[in-house]
Computed example of a mutant assay.
Amino acid sequence: MTAEKTIDGMRSLTIGEVAKRSGVTVSTLHFYESKGLIASTRNAGNQRRFPALVLRSIAIIKVAQRTGIPLAEIKNALGRYPPNSKLTAAQWREMSSAWRESLNLRIRTLEALRDSLDNCIGCGCLSLNDCPLRNPDDTLGLDGPGPRILEARRGQR
């Protein structure tokens, strides 16, 4: 299929082409669009068309998601620039520095979780008086013995 050109001369891709090139499903692209992360236009036949630059936005979204950045944060960061735009080096530095503290906090949290897992045998609340992962200061122990979190989920609390 030959790519169409938009009014401004930019290459235009179908949703299938974007899915294939970006490695995400069509339903993911619909989801990203519904959340305002990417934008499309419609051609005369009412079919979605995306500028080729959308591939950069999707790459940023995928990398950010892999690092644990929530979609709301990604949208906030990308929302500072026109949809599907090519970020300049300065804009990229600005966006990445805004994520830096969030990522550093996430890293510290993951390191603490990793270091605490050695003391946990799974559910923890059956064998430990104080589970730092799920039951800080043993607050659930005040309700009685056993896996209180699981019982609360089943409405047995």
Rank of each mutant, 00 (worst) to 15 (best):
L113W: 04
E151F: 04
R42S: 05
R157H: 09
N104D: 12
K5D: 04
I60C: 06
E94R: 07
P132Q: 01
L55I: 02
A59D: 15
G9V: 01
I58P: 09
L55A: 05
S34F: 04
S34T: 11
A77N: 02
F31L: 15
Q91Y: 07
S57Q: 10
E101F: 07
V26Y: 07
C125Y: 05
L13D: 02
T28E: 00
R154G: 01
H30D: 12
D8N: 13
A44W: 02
S85C: 11
I15R: 04
G141L: 09
E73G: 01
G9C: 01
P82Q: 01
R56H: 14
S57G: 09
R56K: 11
L150S: 13
I58Q: 02
T28A: 15
L13Q: 00
W92Q: 15
N119T: 05
A72I: 07
S57I: 04
F50P: 00
Q91P: 10
C120K: 10
V54I: 04
S57D: 12
L71G: 01
D138R: 05
N76S: 13
A59R: 06
T139M: 13
D143T: 15
L87D: 04
R42G: 05
A89N: 08
A44H: 13
T67H: 06
I15H: 05
G79C: 01
S12W: 14
D118I: 08
D138M: 10
V18Y: 00
L13K: 01
A52G: 03
R21P: 02
I69C: 08
N76V: 07
T88M: 05
E151I: 00
R42Q: 09
G45Q: 15
T2H: 14
A52D: 15
E17F: 03
S57A: 11
S85V: 09
R114H: 12
T88F: 01
C123V: 14
L53I: 04
N119H: 14
R11P: 02
T25G: 09
T28P: 01
S12G: 06
